[in-house]
Computed example of a mutant assay.
Amino acid sequence: MIKKALFLSIAALGMFSCSSDDDTNTVNEPSIVGKWHPSKYMAYSGKDGSIITNESSDAGVCDKKSFIDLNSAGKWHEIDYYGNAGGQCTVDLDTTYDYTYDAASKKLQVKYSNGATDVYTVKKLTDTQLELVEQLFDTDGDGIKDEFTTLFNRE
């Protein structure tokens, strides 16, 4: 009788102390869905990763009014502002595109209405910040495409 009680106690303890591998391997990444305002622009050399200072800056007053709004239906709504000579911010762009985000590869793909596609790497995604990376062109003249990042803050 004691052996049976001991066995049942050990079996019960085992059932409550074990967890599945799914629980330990799951990482809850913050959602990319939300309204994001640019706060900083950085350019990094494709050759050595150093900051290209003349291509890097904090977002200006009008830039900070701009935003991308990524919704759960796969729509990227973008509004860009620019400053005019009078110091007023004016809407320069107000459009919506389709997007997909693959959390495993950290790739955000934007499909424009003209058929072109841009692919961004998500370098950072938290509850409050999103950093998108894009390789556009060689801005420092070393023959290697440079990395351009935009740091966004969630509204």
Rank of each mutant, 00 (worst) to 15 (best):
D22G: 14
D22Q: 10
L8G: 02
K65I: 08
D22C: 08
A12Y: 03
P38Q: 04
K64L: 03
S20N: 13
G49D: 01
S39W: 00
G14D: 03
D22V: 12
S9D: 01
S17I: 12
P38A: 10
V33E: 10
A5M: 07
Y41N: 00
S45P: 07
S19R: 14
I2F: 07
N54D: 12
D23G: 02
S9Y: 10
S66Y: 04
S56K: 14
C18N: 06
K35H: 03
C62H: 07
M15Y: 07
V61T: 14
G34T: 07
S45A: 05
I10A: 13
E55K: 15
F67S: 08
K3A: 11
K4S: 09
W36P: 01
K35D: 03
G46P: 12
D63L: 09
S31V: 07
I10M: 12
T53Y: 11
T53P: 04
F16C: 06
S31W: 04
Y41A: 01
H37G: 10
S56N: 11
H37N: 15
S66K: 04
K3Y: 12
I32V: 15
I10W: 02
C62G: 04
D22Y: 10
K47D: 01
L6I: 15
G14S: 13
S66L: 07
L13Q: 01
I2G: 03
P38G: 07
M42T: 13
L13R: 01
E29Y: 06
I51P: 01
K47I: 01
D23T: 12
A5I: 14
S17F: 12
D21L: 11
H37M: 05
N28W: 01
T53V: 15
P30E: 12
D63T: 08
P38N: 06
M42C: 01
A59N: 03
K3Q: 09
K64Y: 03
Y44V: 02
S31T: 15
A59H: 05
G14H: 05
I2Y: 04
A11V: 13
T24L: 05
F7C: 03
N54E: 11
I32N: 05
T53M: 14
